[in-house]
């Protein structure tokens, strides 16, 4: 397998990497459709169905963003996948546990359930393997805006970037790898009970 975009060291991959052909735009429309479907599942609270969109070997990662000196952003701004402490550095087992917890009905941080809307935009395919016409695996970047309203007055807005690797399976595209870059240092929310 070739290298994957995703983590911070590859964020600045140029737009020129893939020619904006008709095949590119067809594929991009598919990917956008996939993301809209994903957002629907989450916002409709069909969490078990959402799990089905993740590959068995999924890696789901949200680093902690740190305030670092100019020039050190690439090396030190974000905590790293696979080491130390991040907000999330999860596999499918843990994500499944998170879903099961919500479904107990006594996970008080999500009981009653929050009202959540996921907005996805700025979708770009950064790399297609083996090629754009017959792609089985994609590196895709996007932006998200997640609005959460909880109980009465609690409101949180999470904004950031996602770097995904999507894999084509018998049942369509699935998420094999996700990096979520929330644009916050100290988390300005009491909890992260939603999925991104």
């Amino acid at each position: 397998m070739t290298t994957t975009v995703g983590d911070q060291d590859r964020q600045s991959a140029t737009n020129a990497a893939i020619e904006r052909s008709a095949a590119y735009y067809r594929l991009k429309a598919d990917v956008e459709d996939f993301y809209y479907h994903e957002a629907d599942l989450l916002d409709d609270r069909r969490f078990r169905d959402w799990l089905e969109l993740l590959t068995e070997d999924v890696s789901y990662f949200m680093p902690i963003r740190r305030n670092v000196k100019f020039g050190q952003q690439v090396a030190r701004e974000n905590t790293k996948r696979g080491e130390g402490i991040s907000w999330f550095d999860e596999d499918k087992w843990t994500l499944t546990k998170r879903v099961e917890q919500i479904l107990t009905g006594v996970h008080y941080a999500e009981e009653p359930l929050s009202r959540i809307t996921h907005m996805v935009s700025n979708v770009q395919i950064k790399e297609a393997r083996p090629d754009i016409g017959t792609a089985r695996e994609l590196d895709v970047t996007s932006r998200f805006l997640v609005y959460q309203n909880r109980v009465e007055y609690e409101t949180y807005i999470f904004v950031g970037r996602r770097n995904d690797t999507l894999r084509l399976t018998d049942t369509g595209w699935k998420i094999a790898r996700r990096e979520i870059l929330l644009e916050q240092n100290i988390l300005l929310a009491k909890n992260l009970t939603t999925f991104f």
Partner: peptide, 23 residues
């Protein structure tokens, strides 16, 4: 480290419920 993340803090499955109570 993986256990700590799933248990503790605002993304931790246990402590999320603590924050709800305190709030």
């Amino acid at each position: 480290r993986r256990y700590y993340m799933r248990y503790s803090g605002p993304a931790g499955m246990t402590e999320q419920d603590d924050m709800e109570n305190w709030l």
